[in-house]
Design a binder for these strands. Structure first.
Length: 329
DNA sequence: CGGCGGTACTG
DNA sequence: CAGTAC
DNA sequence: GCCG
């Protein structure tokens, strides 16, 4: 697949929910607001509109017909990942993604097997879930203390399987242990501090609020900036694991000078509360990873990524960062 | 069987 | 360099 | 785990 105007170097792929250990609730409301406002922008050249037509997922909310199946498989995927069985976990994750996009309830082993990404072993498991409502393998693999602890530790941002295992063999079992005795990297300290918030799903309504907040700040810096949330939000999911904000400017130049001023502005207002990676350069893209919180009482801390791209890479970047099913084939 | 994304940051 | 995240 |  090629996108003509610019070379697409270093585009990041985001195949599915990053929070593999969490599950979405289903349902509800589609957002026409952003799409609506988007169509009204008159300065979009037509070739870019065409790309958007490809890039834009259907406006409909994505239904999760096989939630009972993916929820069970997610448990195994997370357990395998925590045990450093990464390729097995990847196989599970691909199958889960495929099943999640499957447009109707799966009722048989054969039907499962017809889905690309689901092989014989997983089709057996799907069949067991369809028949009994659960997987015995989950009890076997996930319910021992080690598996539970490893997964708890991997919920700390910046801690992967190796770190989690290291903590485990040092005798740590709880987050309290980590706070008191573990030596954590700066990333992990932040990840621990906001553990509960960061590991909760974000309602898409709140994602929209965050998008608007960032957009307002951006427009205070430079008029005409385009601010758009990608990721699972853009795929129509009811909840998201984090917020992926893509920023560009139609004049093809302004994106170069916007990155730091925008972040500074968001810091000044107290919206950005912690930085994880302050600048990751990818060709002419710039990426920020951090933590934000909307103003007001009772708001949660949320993981926020900001990516600034040149205009010519905007549409394809939106596709990459959205990671649509279309793109996985 | 071997390959499974490729890159940038942190320490 | 290994580990991690995107 | 799955795929080619």
């Amino acid at each position: 697949m090629l996108y003509s105007p610019c070379k697409l170097r270093h585009l990041q792929k985001d195949t599915d929910e990053k929070n593999t250990s969490r599950e979405d609730d289903d349902t509800s409301a589609e957002d026409n607001t952003r799409e609506g406002s988007f169509k009204k922008r008159k300065f979009l050249p037509k070739e870019l509109k065409e790309k958007f037509a490809c890039a834009r997922p259907s406006g409909k909310q994505v239904k999760d017909f096989n939630h009972h199946i993916t929820a069970e498989l997610e448990k195994l995927a997370a357990a395998y990942k925590s045990k450093k069985d990464t390729w097995r976990a990847l196989g599970y994750q691909k199958a889960i993604s495929a099943i999640r996009n499957y447009p109707r309830p799966i009722t048989s082993r054969e039907e499962a097997l017809s889905i690309r990404g689901v092989g014989g072993r997983l089709a057996d498991k799907v069949a067991e879930i369809v028949e009994s409502g659960k997987l015995r393998k989950v009890a076997e693999v996930c319910e021992d203390e080690e598996a539970q602890t490893l997964q708890r530790f991997m919920g700390v941002w910046g801690a992967g399987p190796t770190t989690a295992h290291g903590w485990y063999i040092q005798g740590y079992r709880t987050l309290e242990d980590l706070r008191e005795k573990g030596n954590l990297t700066r990333h992990q300290q932040i990840g621990l501090k906001y553990y509960d918030d960061i590991n909760s799903r974000i309602p898409r309504e709140e994602v929209a609020e965050i998008e608007n907040y960032v957009r307002s700040a951006a427009h205070g810096i430079k008029k005409g900036l385009i601010v758009m949330v990608c990721g699972s939000y853009r795929r129509g999911r009811a909840t998201c694991g984090d917020v992926d904000v893509l920023v560009t400017h139609p004049d093809g130049q302004s994106h170069e000078t916007v990155f730091q001023p925008l972040l500074n502005k968001l810091r000044e207002t107290g919206f950005l509360t912690d930085d994880l990676v302050t600048q990751e350069d990818n060709g002419n893209q710039k990426k920020y990873l951090g933590v934000c919180k909307l103003p007001g009482e009772g708001q949660k801390y949320r993981r926020l990524d900001v990516i600034v791209v040149p205009y010519c890479e905007f549409a394809p970047a939106a596709m990459y960062f959205t990671g649509s099913a279309h793109f996985n084939r």
